[in-house]
């Protein structure tokens, strides 16, 4: 059976456009609002990434740290994250949702227990920032057995040889980190160069759905639209920060922003 993630990519290909992938943090700025946000933006986004926050993230920039901080301050726990996913999936059963976070939370809850909770709540995929290849081989296999997509990351520092190995062991979706940066950095590499690297990776196995993330905003998204998918994260976290500052409703604000992002890639 095809995964919901694979189907989402197929649908986008039919429309000749990249998948729009959003990243927001579960519990930001409240549990309720983060669910409302997911429900709203899923009208425009093709795949939703949802962060489960950690208080010592070693690869996130200020914006996502800020979102995680807000969520943790509100007392978000893993069980709440799964609740949010479950409620979201009840309304949007076919929309793929990917959880993203750091390994310690999985380690503490136990890999199998964590994956069971993923399955029960309807999680489609996982991105674990600090569990690289080949250390992630066993965990990735466990995911596969449960029908959950484990998304491998590739970076500009990944050697060609290593890329081949990672891609060979990967599931249907791969994530290319556009540049050397934490999340939320300014795009310091030209879109042309990013796409050149992207195409090199695609050539290794054209069948894999390859998405680009890091540094993508409404300003840069259209220049990368030949990719299979584009991830926008920090920009959305920043919007939440700003709308809270200006006492605006982050839900309606994000709805508009994601709608606009979508318009730029169709």
């Amino acid at each position: 059976m095809k995964s919901k993630i694979a189907i989402a990519f197929e649908n986008c290909k039919k429309e000749n456009r990249p998948a729009l992938i959003t990243y927001t943090v579960a519990g930001d700025n409240t549990k309720n609002n983060s669910l409302k946000i997911l429900n709203k933006i899923s009208k425009h986004a093709d795949i939703l990434e949802c962060g489960f926050p950690h208080n010592t993230p070693i690869a996130d920039g200020g914006q996502i740290q800020g979102s995680s901080h807000r969520a943790l301050k509100n007392g978000i726990k893993l069980k709440d994250v799964f609740q949010i996913v479950k409620k979201f999936k009840k309304i949007n059963p076919s929309k793929p949702l990917i959880l993203m976070g750091y390994f310690n939370l999985i380690y503490q809850s136990g890999e199998s227990n964590f994956l069971n909770n993923c399955k029960k709540s309807g999680v489609d995929g996982l991105i674990i920032v600090d569990l690289p290849y080949p250390e992630n081989k066993n965990f990735a296999k466990k995911c596969k057995k449960k029908g959950i997509t484990f998304i491998q990351l590739l970076s500009p520092t990944t050697s060609k040889d290593r890329m081949r190995k990672i891609i060979k062991d990967s599931h249907e979706m791969l994530y290319y980190i556009s540049m050397l940066s934490t999340t939320g950095g300014k795009l310091k590499v030209s879109p042309k160069k990013i796409l050149k690297n992207y195409n090199k990776i695609k050539r290794i196995n054209p069948k894999k759905n390859l998405v680009i993330g890091f540094g993508i905003t409404d300003k840069t998204i259209s220049s990368l639209k030949s990719a299979n998918g584009l991830v926008v994260g920090s920009m959305l976290c920043k919007i939440i920060t700003n709308s809270l500052k200006m006492r605006q409703n982050p839900v309606t604000k994000l709805d508009k922003v994601v709608y606009n992002l979508k318009r730029k890639i169709i």
């Binding site: 690869a59 390994f103 600090d130 569990l131 690289p132 970076s155 520092t157 990944t158 980190i177 050397l180």
Partner: peptide, 21 residues
């Protein structure tokens, strides 16, 4: 081979970007 002591301490739980450096 995973740089772990006693099979459970240490290792390299790092983002992909840091693998090569």
């Amino acid at each position: 081979k995973n740089f772990m002591y006693g099979g459970k301490f240490g290792g390299n739980f790092i983002p992909e970007t840091l693998k090569k450096p």
